[in-house]
Design a protein around this nucleic acid. Structure first.
Length: 592
DNA sequence: AGTCCTTTGAAGCAC
DNA sequence: GTGCTTCAAAGGACT
């Protein structure tokens, strides 16, 4: 992604990380079909979840389908659209359309001049803080794309208008198909998205820098020209996040970079965008990450399109301390995209449960699929740094209420029925007997995470390699157990080594033993490859770095997890796998 | 209203 | 370099 490395000093895109993506071409090996099959499997599993869920709460299904649970009226429109997209996704999936990664259309990334991005930020701002920004504000963000979509919309004339009618939300869904002018947005990285039909004006083969299109700089994730005309936003940003849209007036004195309007960019924008939009671009630069408590909005009108027009006014006073949110990491991006899908597939409502599913699916993603997200995340960080040079993650420390970890009586084992522990287990592993769940639960030491596919590169690599082997199926333990988190939600260590062998894609296994990393403490994610390499970094496949750092030391054994448990788990898992008729072998052993 | 839960990853800090 | 903590999203559940 050389083109992204805007300024030399930019370390956001770590070199090593960049290196990790060098093999993107390799990704082409994987056909869209494979991806599709994986997704299908996941979907099947999800359907199982759904089934279970229905069983557990049949009365709930209907309600869920509507997803009215939004507390805030402001979100109604959002919810509706979200539902719509979810259905669309489902439909596409059913029809086999949902094969290629939605991210093929990810726009942000080809940004020759990141500095210019700020200029586009007015289009939407993913970094808006819920706390500081009302839901309606979010809605505003969502509309960014529609805005681009219909440049000719008269409503665009006055960006300052209190009722930006142009922001119709439904637009994106139906009009992306004919958005040639913005189609470039669709692909930020030629390599990662081979399956996609690159827009004619792109140079997918070479990835040569194209003329930076404003749209590319925008946070929007337009549909692939290839025909997902009414498909959901690639990143699932619909919920209101463009990657770097910036609400009008979102200026932050403290972040000059965001303010600086590049003249070239200005002209570019002017030339590319509807003239009506230009003014706002020039005058209003903000960033999604910016959150100001001072942001005010007009109440949305709840127009028929499902979205209200939000007007954001900033109070200079309150603007002092903007809250610039952290850029989303790869998994977060993935979550945003997939959450609606998962929600649509099952009746789960709790985000925690959904996140568990997403976590598993994340591990089941193929290399290229994950690489897309890592790439996106990397670029987001780049962009973020460009927009907010002085920003530090540290700035947000303390913004949230501190979780009470120490004080929490974790020792008191509580099944926490409230959490869809049981339901989750049944959902994910319908065939698993209750005893299994109970057992798992009692073990208590083995959080789902520890047994879950670890964030290890190997796992990530392995799972995708075997289309029929999915962590969700392989993983012995249900997600029911909520491990004690005395100090950190990362504190629990898994002790299970899992040997997953793919018979279908053995070449992907450079190691026979794929240690399921104990979900180690976050250090794993931070100091390990994650900080500089995506889990599936090519390095991992090379002989030198294959061994996940996590395995280097003795892994503390979970307090309650006895070998027998593992055996039981293995049995269950194997049984499950057999039921699935999937070529997979799972070996779980305790590292005691 | 605020916090928790739950996931992974990134960043920051302490040692 | 290692280990830990915090935050990012999301929304139901809980306090």
């Amino acid at each position: 992604m050389p083109q992204l490395d805007g300024g030399g000093g930019d370390d956001l895109g770590a070199n090593d990380e960049l290196i990790s993506f060098k093999d993107e071409g390799e990704q082409e090996e994987k056909t869209a079909e494979n991806v599709s099959s994986e997704r299908d499997l996941d979907d099947v599993k999800s359907s199982l979840v759904n089934e279970t869920e229905n069983n557990s709460s049949s009365s709930d299904s209907e309600v869920t389908s509507l997803r009215p649970q939004q507390h805030r009226p402001d979100w109604e429109s959002y919810v509706r659209q979200r539902e719509f997209f979810a259905e669309a996704l489902r439909a596409q999936h059913d029809s086999g359309l949902f094969k290629a990664s939605p991210y093929a259309t990810y726009p942000l990334l080809m940004i020759p001049d990141l500095g210019n991005l700020a200029n586009l930020s007015h289009l939407g701002n993913p970094y808006l803080s819920p706390g500081a920004l009302s839901p309606s504000a979010r809605t505003y963000i969502q509309m960014k794309w529609p805005m681009l979509d219909v440049p000719g919309t008269s409503a665009l004339k006055d960006p300052r208008s209190t009722s930006p009618a142009h922001m119709s939300n439904k637009v994106p869904v139906v009009q992306h198909g004919h958005l040639p002018p913005f189609s470039p947005l669709l692909s930020y990285s030629p390599d990662p998205f081979p399956p996609r039909t690159p827009p004619p004006h792109l140079s997918p083969d070479t990835g040569l820098p194209r003329t930076p299109h404003p749209a590319e700089l925008s946070p929007y994730y337009p549909l692939s020209p290839g025909g997902m005309g009414h498909m959901t936003h690639p990143l699932g940003w619909l919920p209101g996040q463009s990657v770097y849209g910036i609400p009008a007036g979102g200026f932050r004195p403290s972040y000059p970079a965001a303010l600086a309007m590049n003249s070239s960019m200005s002209s570019l924008v002017a030339s590319r965008f509807s003239p009506h939009m230009v003014p706002s671009l020039q005058t209003s630069v903000s960033h999604p990450a910016i959150v100001s408590t001072a942001i005010k909005q007009e109440p949305r009108d709840g127009n028929r399109h499902g979205y209200a027009y939000t007007h954001i006014f900033l109070s200079e006073k309150e603007e002092k301390k903007p809250h610039v949110k952290k850029p989303l990491n790869a998994f977060m991006l993935y979550m945003k995209e997939q959450r609606p899908k998962v929600v649509a597939e099952c009746t789960l409502k709790e985000s925690a449960a959904i996140n568990q599913i997403l976590g598993r699916r994340w591990h089941s993603l193929s290399r290229e699929e994950q690489s897309k997200y890592y790439d996106m995340a990397r670029k987001e960080r780049q962009l973020h740094s460009q927009l907010y040079p002085g920003w530090s993650a540290r700035d947000n420390y303390g913004k949230r209420k501190k979780r009470k970890r120490d004080g929490r009586p974790e020792t008191h084992f509580s099944p926490q029925p409230k959490k869809s522990c049981v339901s989750y287990g049944t959902q994910e592993r319908p065939s698993v007997s209750h005893t299994h769940l109970t057992h798992t639960h009692l073990s208590q030491a083995s959080p789902a995470s520890s047994l879950d596919s670890p964030a290890t590169p190997t796992t990530a690599l392995a799972s995708p390699a075997a289309p029929h082997t999915h962590p969700e199926q392989v993983q012995p333990l249900s997600l029911t157990t909520k491990p004690p988190r005395p100090h950190s939600h990362r504190e629990t260590h898994g002790q299970t080594y899992t040997h997953i062998q793919s018979h279908t894609h053995p070449h992907l296994f450079t190691h026979t033993h794929l240690p399921l990393t104990p979900k180690t403490t976050s250090s794993q994610s931070s100091s390990s490859p994650s900080s500089s390499h995506p889990p599936f970094s090519p390095h991992m496949s090379s002989s030198s770095n294959q061994t996940p750092p996590l395995l280097t030391g003795p892994i503390p054994f979970a307090s309650g997890l006895a070998p027998s448990t593992s055996i039981h788990q293995l049995t269950m898992s194997s049984h499950h796998a057999m039921l699935q008729s999937q070529p997979l072998s799972l070996v779980t052993r305790n590292n005691n």
